[in-house]
């Protein structure tokens, strides 16, 4: 009997059931808080035709950028994709379809998807290319557009700590889209730096309750830094 124990012991097990043409929601902002080992597993599996929902698409050779050389992604829904030469090439040649989505709308699409809300109105994007083909409506004299929620076949998430029941704690700005992604996957897979026993996390400090989590795996992370900016010591 495993009860609420979500722990799996291999990456193969963690991503079991992922097949071609599925939609994956990924947490992370830039390279911060990305589920880097789960992404590597998808590369290793060679799954293709994927729709990726993620704020960014990694860089050449790291993060979601790893899925580009073998053309595993057919469509990406993202807010900012400017860090990646291979991405740009595939987008310009039409091999990769890109749906640019405002960052707040993207976060809300995940939140709504996880909360059973099919769509929501927002002022973001009114009068811009983002509004094309979307329902518009006025509330209190202001224009809003209707944005639809997103649910993924899989959500892949990076957290800092978890207990075996999948209760999650994130660390600093590595939180970003991760708690939202966690709610919006039909199968939510989380990789963490440390797994503790139930009862060892303070319930008041849990960011994501384990009810959203299906599989949990412990690993180590490279945590590559995109823009290492420092000030001299002593200032």
């Amino acid at each position: 009997m495993s009860g609420f124990d979500k722990v799996v012991h291999s990456y193969e097990e963690a991503m079991a059931g992922l097949t071609d043409n599925m939609t994956i929601i990924a947490g992370g902002f830039g390279l911060c808080g990305i589920p880097e080992n789960l992404i590597s597993e998808i590369k290793h599996k060679g799954t293709r035709g994927l729709t990726l929902v993620s704020n960014n698409c990694g860089v050449d050779g790291f993060g979601l950028g790893l899925l580009l050389p073998d053309r595993q992604i057919s469509k990406i829904i993202a807010s900012y994709v400017g860090e990646n030469a291979e991405f740009e090439r595939q987008m310009m040649s039409g091999e990769l379809s890109v749906e640019l989505t405002p960052q707040g709308t993207l976060a809300e699409k995940m939140r709504a998807g996880g909360a059973g809300i099919p769509a929501f109105y927002t002022a973001t994007g009114v009068g811009t290319p983002v509004a094309e083909g979307k329902d518009e409506r006025q509330f209190n004299g202001r224009d809003y557009i209707l944005e639809e929620a997103i649910v993924g076949d899989f959500a892949i998430v990076k957290a800092w700590k978890a207990d075996r029941y999948g209760n999650l704690v994130f660390r600093k700005t590595a939180r970003n889209f991760n708690p939202l992604a966690a709610t919006a996957g039909k199968i939510t897979v989380v990789e963490v730096e440390e797994i503790v026993e139930p009862g060892q996390l303070d319930p008041d400090e849990i960011h994501t309750p384990g009810i959203y989590v299906n599989r949990l795996i412990q690993s180590t992370f490279e945590k590559r830094i995109e823009q290492r900016t420092t000030r001299p010591a002593g200032e």
Binding site: F29, G30, L31, C32, G33, W160, R171, K172, T173, A174, K223, R224, I225, E226, Q227, R228, T229, T230, R231, P232, A233, E235
Partner: peptide
């Protein structure tokens, strides 16, 4: 402010993806 070399934390960045402090 930006961190000193010792304070750099990959889990703490700003919207420009630069390492920062709190």
């Amino acid at each position: 402010a930006f961190p000193t070399e010792d304070e750099v934390d990959a889990d703490l960045i700003n919207a420009g993806k630069q390492t920062v402090t709190m």
